[in-house]
């Protein structure tokens, strides 16, 4: 089953074309890693997919529901807000700098959207939140506030927060880039566990080790385009494009 289908996606900021004819698919249960140099449009792509940014052209279909399509005149036409609402419920996003709500406890960070948006009862939401916190190894932090957490703990709470809405697909934008190196492991471990449970994930990452071990597929982006796409061992170890090779060589030099 195709969980996400993107066709001919284009996005410009003023005259700066940031995404140029992006097409790819993500199957249910698949983990796709997106890599590429800074400014290549990876974040913008995720922001378009999660409705934080509107595309100029292209089609996005989430689990069979059309989010946006291009009409005959070549303009993007979004589904009505009622459908978008439904589509939003299927997607979760984990940000580079966590974006936890500082005025809510850890527990409330996780229950707020289920209670307010999905209209789940407080008790049920809390039960689910505790289950997720246990899974993240953070049950003792339920009453803590975000300022009392380390980066790695914050990011795991953010992952729990995204999972609390039971999304069908989870997007990660460089989830470990804001972390001290010794803290990336605990976040990657949680993501590995999710992958093992066949959670559908699209992960923008600089962690080549993670991409190699966990991703089913790697997409290399440069200058707003998908340059290369395929099995991680191919794209990362034996890329066919010169640009990919240069990028990966550059990474391993640091």
């Amino acid at each position: 089953m195709v969980m996400l289908e993107v066709k001919g996606l284009c996005k410009s900021f003023d005259s700066n074309r940031v995404l140029n004819d992006i097409s790819f698919k993500v199957d249910k249960g698949e983990v796709v890693a997106i890599i590429g140099p800074s400014g290549s449009g990876k974040s913008t792509l995720l922001r378009c997919l999660t409705l934080l940014e509107k595309v100029d052209q292209g089609t996005i279909i989430v689990a069979g529901d059309v989010m946006v399509q291009t009409n005959k005149e070549g303009h993007a036409v979004y589904a009505p807000e009622s459908s978008l609402k439904k589509i939003r419920l299927r997607m979760g996003m984990v940000f580079q700098d966590f974006n936890l709500f500082p005025h809510f406890s850890v527990l409330r960070n996780i229950t707020e959207a289920p209670v307010r948006v999905a209209r789940i009862s407080q008790d049920q939401a809390e039960e689910r939140a505790m289950e997720l916190l246990r899974k993240m190894g953070l049950e003792d932090k339920r009453d803590a506030y975000p300022y009392q957490l380390s980066g790695g703990q914050s990011q795991r709470v953010a992952i729990a927060r995204a999972l609390a809405m039971n999304p069908d697909i989870l997007f990660f934008d460089e989830p470990t880039s804001a972390l001290d190196p010794e803290l990336t492991g605990e976040v990657l471990r949680v993501m590995r566990a999710l992958a093992a449970e066949r959670m559908t994930m699209v992960v923008v990452t600089h962690e080549m080790g993670f991409a190699r071990e966990v991703a089913d597929r790697v997409i290399f982006m440069d200058k707003g385009q998908i340059v290369e796409e395929g099995r991680p061992e191919v794209v990362l170890c034996n890329p066919s494009s010169e640009r990919t090779r240069a990028f990966i060589k550059g990474l391993s030099e640091h």
Partner: peptide, 17 residues
């Protein structure tokens, strides 16, 4: 920070919420 708005927008909080 803008991230606060985004973290609320993705799961579908309304503007008023």
């Amino acid at each position: 920070p803008k991230g606060q708005y985004e973290a609320a927008a993705v799961p579908g909080f309304s503007k008023i919420q």
